[in-house]
């Protein structure tokens, strides 16, 4: 009996039905909004891309908070630490790759590549 009681008290510290429902409804809202805007092409291209990107980021945060309960742990917050480091790595990885590849494309068009190959005596493309 005492175990059950303390179990319930432990539960209060954590998620309950309400937090899951809030997370679910919000996620549903942002998913449907992004989908509808894209399908109906409600605005011009740039606006749509900005809106659906924002919707994705917001939904990401919502699901981290309400489903994965990030930041609800006791101190020291090792999870938050690991998460921050990983987020940094992810950002470096993705932004860095795109940046480098965009630069490569920028610095060498197909025409340039052909000229370069001819110069090197390898013929054209």
């Amino acid at each position: 009996m005492s175990q059950i009681k303390s179990y319930h008290r432990f539960n209060k510290l954590e998620a309950n039905f309400k937090t899951y429902l809030i997370g679910f409804v919000l996620s549903l809202f942002f998913t449907l909004t992004a989908w509808l805007i894209t399908v109906k092409k409600a605005f011009n291209q740039e606006t749509i891309i900005i809106i659906i990107s924002l919707a994705a980021v917001i939904q990401f945060v919502i699901q981290l908070l309400f489903f994965l309960h990030l930041g609800k742990e006791s101190r020291p917050r090792y999870r938050l630490l690991v998460f921050s480091v990983m987020l940094l790595i992810v950002l470096i990885l993705v932004i860095g790759s795109l940046w480098i590849m965009a630069n490569l494309n920028h610095n060498m068009t197909i025409k340039q590549m052909e000229n370069y190959m001819v110069q090197q005596g390898n013929g054209g493309i």
Partner: peptide
Amino acid sequence: MFWHFLDIVWIFIFTIVYLYGALGR
């Protein structure tokens, strides 16, 4: 945790692959 994580990854596949793709960026 695993299942919630997969849903979180899907948000980005949904947005970046499918929605951006459908817009023909």
